[in-house]
Design a protein around this nucleic acid. Structure first.
Lengths: 242, 242
DNA sequence: CGGGCATTTGATCTAATTCAAAGCGAGTGG
DNA sequence: CCACTCGCTTTGAATTAGATCAAATGCCCG
């Protein structure tokens, strides 16, 4: 479609991730309009923050490569990981309601994001209804994801949570065309635990248990899935004799 | 503005809740356009469902009066309350992403909602940018709320969660002009527990503890707040000597 | 090669669950 | 109008999953 594909294309229409990202399903004509969306790209080194809670909100960010965590802090200082984001996922939706961010977004490996000024998104999605729909879907998807996390935190036991977590990660990697049996975790046991509402020791013990049961292998942060059905059964709590 | 105000006005412009709801902040001219939004109203009796998980999605619903819970079910049947909604709040956002609902919405008391076909919302919000902004804010607000729930579920102990829950309810009632010291709970201990990730007995014990400490009084589902600062300290975990 | 973080594993400890029973209140039918 | 039920709530005692405390090991990176 694009007449002269450039290596570091600064537009959605020439981005190889467009079918994974905000412009999914757009016609070529619409894609042209959407090309004004992107104000630029930004690289974030491992450990650096993309934005912080309290900062004023202006942009959404689409992950081009790399891996992020978002953390939310309580007034008393306690902090919790509230999400992990990978390529094609959108960061910053929390900032819309009050025009400032309510969480920190931190790169867990060197990363690059597309900077998408939110006023342009609103402007263009008034013209391009498919973009409008995509924005709504992305926000709704986040709401549904959060329901799932609440479910995990409220109802599941430690091993069930970890099983569900592994399955979720591997599924998202599959959706992006990566290996369906192995993965490299980008976060520490502590960060996993924070996300899953448990202590790092409990995460470690659950991993060890899975290894002992022949469900996965673990070499540091490299995970191989040996028995996905067993994981699935665990996550659905059909593991017990009851 | 409206020439002939009717009792059961079937439009946003004549609705006394408009500043609490989707049309907040709209100019009178914009309000006229937005009047095509409402396809009708629907009454739901206590215990009946507004929509169920799996049903196809077509409308958002604005609560006019009454009180709802939303419950999400895991594939294995376990169910959890994922939210409570009161007057002025919007139900159905979960359905946008996959065009079917992922949770049940159940009335905890006799209720009435405005039925807002989502395709009309999209259509009109392409013309009325303030409406577009409101839709985005409402969805973002829900995402931020969910972050807070995750925080509770992941990091807080039972009494802290209940304190935070009471404060949240009373604040939302205040925002709507109700009493700032007392309220009538519309849900059972079990529903509170489900939402807060704890058992009904634990909820009951936490209530009893608060009463013993002189922080609140409880008469069945009627709660009076005696010492709001104490509640606030509890919710922020500044209760311990540490 | 050494230092520092991340991880694993073991031994207690505890908050919350589970099991059990009794109390309370609102609504119904006699 | 009262008695009776049924669902909700409270309270107690025993149990347990996960937290906490502690120590050893491993690994990456300068």
């Amino acid at each position: 479609m694009a007449s002269l594909p450039t290596i570091h294309a600064q537009s959605c229409s020439s981005c190889n991730l467009r079918e994974l990202c905000l412009p999914v399903g757009l016609t070529p004509e619409d894609l042209d309009k959407v090309d004004q969306l992107l104000s630029g790209r930004r690289r974030i080194k491992r450990g650096d923050t993309l934005f912080r809670a309290g900062e004023s909100f202006a942009n959404l960010y689409a992950v081009r490569f790399g891996f992020f965590k978002t953390t939310t802090a309580a007034p008393d200082g306690r902090e919790q990981v509230t999400g992990f984001q990978m390529v094609g996922e959108i960061l910053g939706l929390d900032g819309i309601v009050h025009n400032h961010h309510t969480c920190d977004a931190i790169a867990l490996e060197d990363a690059e994001v597309c900077v998408l000024p939110f006023d342009r998104i609103e402007e263009i999605s008034r013209e391009v209804s498919q973009l409008q729909t995509n924005v709504h879907r992305i926000m709704s998807r986040e709401i549904v994801r959060d329901q799932g996390v609440m479910m995990m935190l409220g109802n599941m036991r430690a091993e069930e949570r970890l099983a569900a977590f592994i399955l979720n990660l591997i599924q998202r990697l599959r959706d992006r065309g990566f290996s369906s049996k192995e993965m490299q975790l980008r976060m520490t046991r502590e960060e996993i635990g924070s996300y899953l509402g448990m202590k790092l020791e409990t995460v470690s013990r659950a991993f060890s248990r899975f290894v002992a049961d022949g469900i996965i292998t673990v070499k540091q942060r490299h995970i191989s899935i040996l028995n996905e059905d067993a994981l699935r059964r665990l996550a659905m709590s059909q593991n017990e004799s009851v």
